[in-house]
């Protein structure tokens, strides 16, 4: 077996374990930290797929900035007691997860190879390739996303500045 395949399985098992910890741990801070670990492992998967740029951005944006803000808010509110189990939400969540698993199973059991696979070369995930495809093929979704982010920033400022 190839070393990268062994590495993939090790990382995947750890990823699934840490994702399960996000759901099943009772302390919110522990859940958030497990999510940081999961995001970090996904970044390693990106690097293994010859996309180091996406991997590093994953660490920088998700593990480094967004999760820090999550932790910041959670720690400030400092939930002393562990979250109580709520039966209703538990049911909803399980149903949604089962639905997702069923649809994924249908997709994965379909053993055909994708019609037009991309070969991962050294330059496949380089900043140049990423930038070229962002600003040529995907320029409209890219611009729409940036407008969405701008709207979110303006909304946050308006909400923060509202008179009490």
């Amino acid at each position: 077996m190839d070393a990268s395949v062994i590495l993939f399985y090790v990382i995947s098992v750890l990823l699934v374990l840490s994702s399960l910890m996000v759901v099943f741990l009772r302390n919110v801070v522990h859940c958030a930290l497990a999510l940081v670990v999961a995001l970090f492992l996904i970044a390693i998967l990106f690097v293994m797929l010859h996309a180091p740029m996406v991997g590093v951005l994953q660490v920088l944006v998700y593990a480094g900035a967004i999760m820090v803000l999550f932790l910041f808010v959670i720690m400030f509110l400092n939930p002393t007691a562990s979250e109580p189990r709520r039966k209703l939400w538990w049911g909803f969540g399980s149903a949604a997860a089962l639905l997702l698993a069923a649809s994924l199973a249908a997709l994965l059991s379909n053993g055909e190879a994708p019609a037009d696979p991309v070969t991962a070369t050294e330059t496949f995930g380089s900043p140049e390739t990423l930038a070229k495809s962002l600003f040529t093929d995907f320029v409209l979704p890219f611009e729409i996303t940036s407008v969405l982010l701008l709207v979110a920033i303006i909304g946050a400022v308006v909400l923060a500045k509202r008179e009490p």
Binding site: P52, M53, V56, V59, A63, G64, V68, P127
Partner: peptide, 14 residues
């Protein structure tokens, strides 16, 4: 790395 400087920003943000 071809993303060296971005990598430094990412790991120091950990």
């Amino acid at each position: 790395l071809n993303i060296g400087i971005l990598y430094i920003l990412a790991v120091t943000s950990l």
